[in-house]
Every structure is written in C-alpha cells, then in structure tokens.
Amino acid sequence: MPTPFDTVFPLRCARVHEVCGPSATAFAVVAAAGGTQPVIWIREAWRGEGLNPVALAEFFDPARLLVVQSRDVVDALAVAEEALRDGCVPMVVLEAGRALDLREGRRLQLAAKTGKSTGLCLIAEGAGSNAAETRWHAAPLHDSEREDSTLMRWEIIKNKTGTFGAWDVRWESQTHRLDVVSAARLGAGSTGAPG
C-alpha cells in the first residue's frame, strides 16, 4: 500500500530531515513556506550560489528569511544547534558542506527535540547522516504540458517511521500551495521497506 503523501509532508515537527538532489533548494523553500514565523537559513559564507529573494517571493515572504553566513561547517552546525534548541524559529535550514557524522546528526536531532522546531539539511547526494528522521531526493522533471511549471519528483529514500514513496509535485505560485500531481513509481533500487 503506497504511503499517503500527507503523512510525510509537511515534515514531522521536532525532527531533523535531510534532502538531496538538484531540487533540494526548492524542497527546502516549499517546506519553509506557510506560516508567518521567521526561517533561519544557514550557509557557509564561501559558497557562491546564493538564494535569490526575488524568486523566493513566489514561495514565501522574503522578510521572514534570516540568512546566517558561517565561516565553516563547525560554526554552521553550532548555529543550527543553537537555533533549533531555542525553538523560537520553527524552521531551520542548514546547507551542510560535508557529510555529517552520526554524532553531529544526533546532536541536531536532540536540539530539535528540545526546541520543538524542524530542521532540514541540504546535503550532497549520498552524504546523509543516520540520525536523520527522513531523507528525500528531489529532482526537477520536464513538464511538457505547462510552461513556467515547477514539476518535481520528490522521493523519500529514508524514513524512520514509515515506508518509502515517490510523488510528482508542483508548486502553485498563485494559490501558494503544493499540488501533488501523481504518486510516481518508486525509483529503481529502492525496496519500499522502512529504513
């Protein structure tokens, strides 16, 4: 029986999740949309690829976004832990420059539990930490029917409390909501068993 989408998204609160793939940024932005509270986005200062707030406005009000530029991964992790533990920011996004080990992942997980806020790590493909609650792979899809479409395939590739699944989703910028177009076939190699 396929996993219903609404049991896995929005992401479970008070946990840290991971997302990889080319559309990871879009996934994070959609996950942060909704609500009026601030979002903290932690990135390392040396990275060239920046968010474009003009495009961000299609998902949520850029005034909600606080970008923290950290010197290195250690600082980024410390800031993420601090922000998650405080709990006044419901969503903390961390662009991790390297794979997190179990200790670091677990610390973030505990901090999120204390602060009851959601963490999301943007990771490189295959660089996940075992402590993550769920891990997603997000990739854009070509939409032959619509122009200016944001069709993406979101695939859940690790889930501590459920099964896997894959969905084709699209962000509707007019209504500011996520449309699940169809439940897609699972990608090759995934078994569907809980991880």
Binding site: A45, V68, S70, R71, A78, E82, V89
Partner: peptide, 19 residues
C-alpha cells in the same frame, strides 16, 4: 537568538534581504 548566534559568527553575518 540573533545576539547569541552573533557572538559566534558576528552580528553582521546574520543577514536579511531587502528589495
């Protein structure tokens, strides 16, 4: 929270976007 993060990464490194 911003002050606390600021003691670690510097207060000017916590930024927001303005149009």
């Amino acid at each position: 929270l911003i002050s606390r993060i600021g003691t670690r990464v510097g207060l000017e490194n916590i930024q927001r976007f303005l149009p």
